[in-house]
């Protein structure tokens, strides 16, 4: 009870502060949403402020919160890891476009097995998270890992306990790979049949790190920065691939951006010999007929700058820039954003 009251009080204070900021610094861009791209948006914002003097305030409150905020018109843009569907975008009058991509990697904890030594497939991962494969010495795992000695050790699946775009992309991939996953479903949070939940990437990593036999999934950038033992994956074409910027980019190159409303392509399980099967994009939402066209216009200018000058910064932080063809596709869609007289704002 006390916690909830505190929560409400904090929310009220935040709301007051946010509205105060919005009026005080009209030129600054305000955005809210996904936590996954937060480090990158923060870095871009700092660099952009240096170059142009225009600041960008981004609150990483989660994709769900970002969608709510942009619908309620309290921010200039919302950010989400889970793309909205064409009809949802239509109903809310929103335009959606992808910004950068990242990958999701399985991590594990087995004594004496080195990072990258284990190979997993979507089908095996799905069976592990369904509780059907219970031990590391299961024949299905052994078949993918000839030559690697896997111990007789109970498998403890670890998942994200908070709602997360990472979970959405992960469950989407499991659903693509194993038809039994349909009973669990695809969402930012699901009713996991087995395992333990950790809060955030750091929660999952901590649980995997200290539980022998555990397996989990985290964002690639997070796994790399913390030197977590990741596995390789079997992709849709039946090839074994390493998680890397190249394999994420391969997945993006093979995706059908043009034919998906709002470019809401889910990059999991894309075809192509080099494609990493658990690649994911993160998205921006703006109003097509914004109440404050200046705010939306500066948002689009900011992302135009980020597309052209932000690739290096993205790669430094282990995010994957979009292919150039996709960027020009996205920028041409910005013409749909108009002010009150029907003129494009960008």
């Amino acid at each position: 009870m006390f916690k909830l009251r505190k929560l409400l009080a904090t929310a009220a204070i935040l709301a007051v502060t946010a509205s105060g900021l919005a009026t005080a610094q009209a030129a600054d861009i305000s955005g809210a949403g996904a936590t996954f791209p937060y480090p990158l948006y923060g870095k871009w914002a700092a660099e952009y402020k240096n170059e142009t003097g225009v600041g960008m305030n981004y609150q990483s409150i989660g994709s769900g919160g970002g969608i709510k905020q942009i619908k309620a018109n309290t921010v200039d843009f919302g950010a989400s890891d889970k793309p909205l569907s064409g009809t949802e975008l239509e109903q809310a009058g929103l335009l959606q476009f992808p910004v950068v991509m990242g990958g999701i990697v399985p991590i594990f904890n087995i004594d004496g097995v080195k990072p990258g030594e284990v190979v997993l497939s979507g089908d095996v991962l799905a069976q592990i998270y369904l509780g059907k494969i219970k031990n590391w010495n299961d024949p299905a795992i052994a078949a993918l890992n000839k030559g690697v000695k896997l111990p007789d050790l109970a498998l403890i699946p670890i998942y994200r306990s908070d709602g997360s775009g990472t979970s959405f992309n992960f469950t989407y991939f499991l659903n693509e790979s194993n038809k039994d996953w349909a009973e669990v479903g695809v969402n930012t949070s699901v009713e996991w049949p087995v395992g333990l939940g950790g809060k955030g990437n750091e929660g999952v990593a901590a649980l995997v790190g200290q539980t022998k036999g555990a397996i989990g999934y985290v964002e690639y950038a997070y796994a790399l920065q913390n030197a977590l033992p990741y596995s390789r994956m079997l992709n849709k074409d039946g090839k074994v691939v390493e998680p890397s910027l190249e394999s994420f980019q391969a997945a993006a190159a093979n995706a059908d951006w043009k034919g998906t409303p709002g470019y809401g392509v889910i990059l999991a399980n894309q075809p192509g010999a080099a494609s990493w099967p658990m690649t994911a994009a993160t998205f921006i939402l703006v109003h097509k007929a914004p109440a404050k066209p200046e705010g939306t216009a500066s948002t689009l200018k900011f992302f135009d700058w980020a597309y052209s000058k932000g690739d290096k910064m993205a790669e430094d932080l282990h995010y994957v820039p979009l292919p150039d063809a996709t960027v020009s596709l996205v920028e041409s869609s910005w013409k749909q954003v108009v002010d009150k007289d029907g003129k494009p704002v960008f």
């Binding site: 916690k3 989660g62 306990s161 908070d162 709602g163 949070s189």
Partner: peptide, 18 residues
């Protein structure tokens, strides 16, 4: 066995509840 409590569920899921 792992479980959850009311306040833990709120802390985990409120931000991303859609």
């Amino acid at each position: 066995a792992p479980g959850t409590t009311i306040s833990a569920t709120l802390a985990n899921e409120f931000t991303e509840a859609v």
